[in-house]
Simulated scan of single mutants.
Amino acid sequence: MPEIPFTKGHGTGNDFVIVADPDGEIDLSADQVAALCDRHFGIGADGLLRVVRSRAIDAGAAALAADPAAEWFMDYRNADGSVAEMCGNGVRVFARYLLDTGLATLDPGSTLPVGTRDGVKAVTRSDAGFEVDLGRWRAEAGDPLVRAKGLDIARPGMGVDLGNPHIVVALASDAELEGLDLGVIPVIDPAPAHGANVEFVVPSDPLVSGGIGRVRMRVFERGVGETLSCGTGTVAAALAVRSWAGQGAPDRWSVEVPGGTLGVRMVPGPDGERVALSGPATLVYSGTVTLA
């Protein structure tokens, strides 16, 4: 059985197994990914980041067409081995790995393009670590109901598409947020065709302080379960709360998750509003592992 090198990293507690495969020579099955991410019998992680050159993976062709400088592609897999479109925390950790291993450089004021299945994401340095331009977002039509263990009745949610699907549910208090049992999968009605991440949020009181909106969040990620943080989920939460707050709500948000705090900016653009996520990225340790 072959051995492969890996690195463990995280962004606000959202953790990943990172496997370098520059030339696309490692074909990890869903079962192998799930085994590596298993917290009892494997390394343990919320997902796996395969570091591969865009030219070496079929999904990278679109990234290179959009930006020929997008040399590296983030092949992201959920903890159950399923393929996912995007991961906001993962992009920052991916960038940290590229820089720390010398595979890429990022001078102050410059941008590092990273290919994903949701297009090319531009990474810059920030006071918090890195900021990722996640591009345009879209509010989904309808008012899905979400049932979760610990809530007395189903609650309506707002659908937000950030390249991957989210449903944001407002709760009344910190006690409701802390009382959720996210060891049980929330039920969405109607059920999205490809599932969705579900964010449960409580706006702070006061909602806005120093021109920055503030909110607390817990998240259930499809294909993973509850995680300490979800980057795109953080952005979805901020977008939803801003929408509910109405005219005059700020375009800068601080979102507290169990693993730390992330920043969200909404930026107008010629092709529509864009959103950016900022926060830390940490590499923890490296080793080798035997593939089953």
Rank of each mutant, 00 (worst) to 15 (best):
T227Y: 06
V17Y: 05
A154T: 11
S286F: 03
A236T: 02
A175G: 11
W253I: 04
A154N: 08
S204K: 06
I57G: 03
A84T: 13
H194S: 06
L239T: 06
R96C: 03
D46L: 01
P108Q: 13
A30Q: 12
P190T: 12
T105Q: 14
G90H: 01
V241A: 08
S254H: 05
R155H: 10
V202G: 08
P250E: 07
P280C: 05
L106T: 02
S204T: 01
V284E: 13
V120F: 10
H10V: 04
G81D: 08
R125N: 10
P186D: 13
L103I: 02
P113N: 05
E71D: 12
S54N: 10
R147S: 14
G135K: 08
G9V: 01
D21N: 11
F130T: 01
T12F: 00
R138S: 12
G163I: 06
D152S: 15
G119N: 10
G109C: 04
V284S: 00
E25K: 14
R77G: 04
A148M: 06
T7S: 12
A191M: 13
L112R: 10
D143I: 07
L48R: 09
L239Y: 02
D21Q: 13
M158T: 15
R39D: 07
V123R: 04
D251W: 10
G179P: 10
V289S: 05
K149P: 00
M217D: 12
L291Y: 08
F130D: 00
K149V: 15
L151R: 11
V187L: 13
G135P: 05
V169N: 06
D31Q: 14
A148R: 10
W137H: 15
A70T: 07
E226A: 09
L283H: 09
G269M: 01
M74F: 00
T234A: 07
D271P: 00
E178R: 14
V257D: 06
L291S: 02
S209L: 15
F16N: 04
T111K: 12
S229T: 11
G47A: 02
V275Y: 03
V201T: 15
D251L: 12
A59G: 04
I18G: 07
D143R: 15
E3M: 05
V187S: 10
